[in-house]
Computed example of a mutant assay.
Amino acid sequence: MATIQQIQEFVAMAHRVGQSGLTVCSSGNLSVRLDNDEVMISGTGSWVPDLTPDKVSVCRLSTGEVLNGIKPSMESVFHMGVMRERPEVGCVLHFQSPYATAVACMKKRPADFNFTAECPIHVGREIPMIPYFRPGSPELASHVIEQMKHHDSVMLLKHGQVVCGKDFSQALERAMFFEMACRIAVINGDNVDPLTAEEIGDLDTYILGKTTK
C-alpha cells in the first residue's frame, strides 16, 4: 500500500498542477504509478489544485480494485488503461488549461501545433483529436487508451487534454508546452507560421545527436 510519504508527495504534485494554471476547481485529474502494481489517482470530485491526502485513491493497477476505500476519479479507467498499455508511463495528467481548452472548443483548429521547437520535441509532432464523448464514459476511455498507445498527448474536443510521461515532471512539462502552443494559436489566429517538415527533421538530427554523445 502507498505510504504516507508517497501520498504527501502526490498531493504536492497535484498542487503544482494547480499552481501552473492547468486545472480549475474540480476539472482534471492526476495519476502516478507505484512499484507494486498500485497507482495513486486523485479522488472523484476532488479539486486537484487543493487536493488533500484523504482524497487520494490508491488502486491496484492490474485490476482497478480500490485498495484504500477512496473512489478514484471517474476518468481513472483511461489513466490505468494507458499505464497498462505502456509500462514505461509513470504519470498521466488530464487537464483543462485556458488556451488549450479554448482550442479544443474551436470549430476550426490549427492543422498542427509545431509553432516552436518545444512542441515536436516534448508534446508530439502529431496530436490526435478525440471526438467529444461524455466525460467518464467508456467510449472516451477507449479512445484515449487507443490513441495514447502511440502518442504522449491528445486533445479531447469540447473537453480538455491528456498527457503522459515517464514521471510527473515529464508529464507536467508536456502539459505546459501543450498550453504554450495553444496560446500561440489563439493569440495569432491565422497569422501563424509552423515549423516545416525540414525544420522538424533538423531538430530530430540535433536531438538524436545530443543524446548519443
Rank of each mutant, 00 (worst) to 15 (best):
M176G: 12
Q161H: 09
M155V: 06
R174M: 08
A185E: 10
Q170N: 04
L172Y: 01
A175M: 05
H159G: 11
L156F: 11
D167N: 09
C182S: 10
K158V: 15
M180A: 02
A181V: 01
V163A: 00
L157H: 04
C182N: 11
A185N: 07
A171S: 10
C164M: 07
N188Q: 09
A175C: 08
V163S: 00
M176F: 06
L172R: 03
M155P: 08
M180P: 00
L172F: 06
N188D: 04
M155Y: 04
Q161R: 07
N191A: 09
V154N: 02
F177I: 05
K158D: 12
G165M: 05
A181E: 01
A181T: 00
L172C: 04
I187E: 13
M180S: 06
C182T: 15
E179Q: 01
Q161E: 09
L157T: 05
R183Y: 08
I184L: 14
G160E: 10
D167F: 08
H159N: 13
M176R: 14
A181H: 00
K158A: 05
V186E: 07
E173C: 09
Q170S: 13
A175H: 05
D167Q: 03
R174H: 14
F177W: 04
L172N: 00
M176A: 07
G160Q: 11
K158P: 03
H159L: 12
L157Y: 01
A185F: 07
D190A: 15
Q170K: 15
I187K: 10
E179D: 02
F177A: 01
M176D: 11
F178H: 12
M155I: 15
Q161C: 09
V162G: 06
D167E: 08
S169M: 10
Q170R: 13
H159T: 05
V186G: 04
G160C: 14
C164Q: 04
R174I: 12
A175G: 13
V163Q: 00
K166I: 15
I187T: 14
C182R: 02
A171I: 11
R183W: 03
V154L: 10
A185P: 05
D167W: 12
R183Q: 09
K158W: 09
V186M: 12
D190M: 08
